[in-house]
Amino acid sequence: MITSLPGDPGSTEILAIANLPVLWIFAVGVFAAIILQTIIYVRAARIAAPAAGISPTELKTSFRAGAVAAIGPSLAVVLVSVALLSLFGTPAVLVRVGLVGSAATETASASIAATTMGAALGDASYTQSVFAVAFMAMSLSGAMWMIATLVLTPLLKRGDSRLRSVNPALMAIIPAAALLGAFASLGIGEFGKTPVHILTVLASAAVMGACLLVARRFDQGWLREWGLGFSIVIGLIVAYSAHTTGLAPVA
């Protein structure tokens, strides 16, 4: 599958550079940082447990309860990640979608970044250099989240009153407006492409709508976590059948 050598700016063989061993090393390093952090936290919690009025057994129970509760949501992320492998390669998917970010923010960032280069994700304009710029932009954005956490946590710990006195209406409206504006724009952008794109957006939206409806009506919380995975799979099936039956323009 990987035929060209790394570093061909115009090539659409993304995986030739996206799966480079160096990137694997960095990705595994991020996982190592999380594992190290967990070990240190668990040890620190064990030492301070009596002071916090919690028994070692209760610590263990909490750890296990958290682990079991995470199985479903985690496998849902796995499904979405596998679907994105051909777009970003394994190391980038592991770090960006699996860890720091989420499928929604990272694909949105990648799409926005690709647009600035006059390209779109996954088609003939999605070259190695577009991928590299998109990967850089989404990583920088993810880094800003971490920098904000590093800066704000000590301030919030000290109970900085300025941060708490931010107008609650502003805190409710502006982030919601930014998110809805961004994703509405990206969604409407797809409507300007081919009929298959439009059909795919609608199918994906319909599946998510159905999942959320069933989740609420029949009290099936797990459907909320799996909604995105199901939407992607069914969206892609719809896209494939529409594409192969000739709804798409001949490329």
């Binding site: 979405v80 777009l87 969604g187 609608l202 994906s204 939206a205 995105l228 939407s231």
Partner: peptide
């Protein structure tokens, strides 16, 4: 079509 299939949901 991965992007439209994410964005709708």
């Amino acid at each position: 079509y991965i992007f439209p299939s994410i964005i709708g949901a």
